[in-house]
Design a protein around this nucleic acid. Sequence first.
DNA 1: TAAATATATTTTACAAAGTAGAACAAATGA
DNA 2: TCATTTGTTCTACTTTGTAAAATATATTTA
Lengths: 105, 105
Amino acid sequence: MRQPSQLGEFEHLLLLTLAQLKGKSYGTEIRKTLKQLINRDSSIGALYATLERMEKKGFISSTLGEPTAERGGRAKRYFELSAEGKQALRETQQQLKTMWQGLEL
Amino acid sequence: MRQPSQLGEFEHLLLLTLAQLKGKSYGTEIRKTLKQLINRDSSIGALYATLERMEKKGFISSTLGEPTAERGGRAKRYFELSAEGKQALRETQQQLKTMWQGLEL
DNA sequence: TAAATATATTTTACAAAGTAGAACAAATGA
DNA sequence: TCATTTGTTCTACTTTGTAAAATATATTTA
């Protein structure tokens, strides 16, 4: 069985994106940020599916915002890192640090 | 579509293990090393399946050794990081470095 | 030398994560 | 009201991750 802190590749990147965005942020913004930071493309479907799975695991939480007064200003769903999510990031980071120890590639 | 350098979580760890082991190494040894380094358990099936997939992608290569003169000394299959595998590791590392930039968790 | 035992890999089957695109929802502007 | 815009949800499928059983092949021992 997979341990609770084990993050999939895309899960890992999304959590880091949320960390970078600090506070709350929503789908399109998250997607754009990931693209800007490391040029990683992601479909909207992939994004939400992964966010949903991580919410179920408790790594993030989401809240529905208010509609805004702009064209197409539909209510946004804001996502936020949870304490468990931060912990998972720290553990993953620590593991990778160990695995890289002494390597020169 | 997934880019060539994109590594799954377990793929990533296995490539790093091969890098740590330097030179050639075989299944059981790889498994033991991963356990020692970061206490990560993996079934033999998971290990070989992932190694095989990565060989197909060109991240590693494998060669069959000679049987050894010890009880149960069946011929071992040795795995080795390829140039493409090293490159994938470097790119992944660089991406994560960027994603972590400025974060304090 | 046949059976037991040890080391190692391969096969099989399934669960979880990753992915894309269409469908849907809800707002404003014309 | 209908076209347009921004945003989320649904659907279908591929790839990765996983465990356990089956198989292979060597030595030791009865």
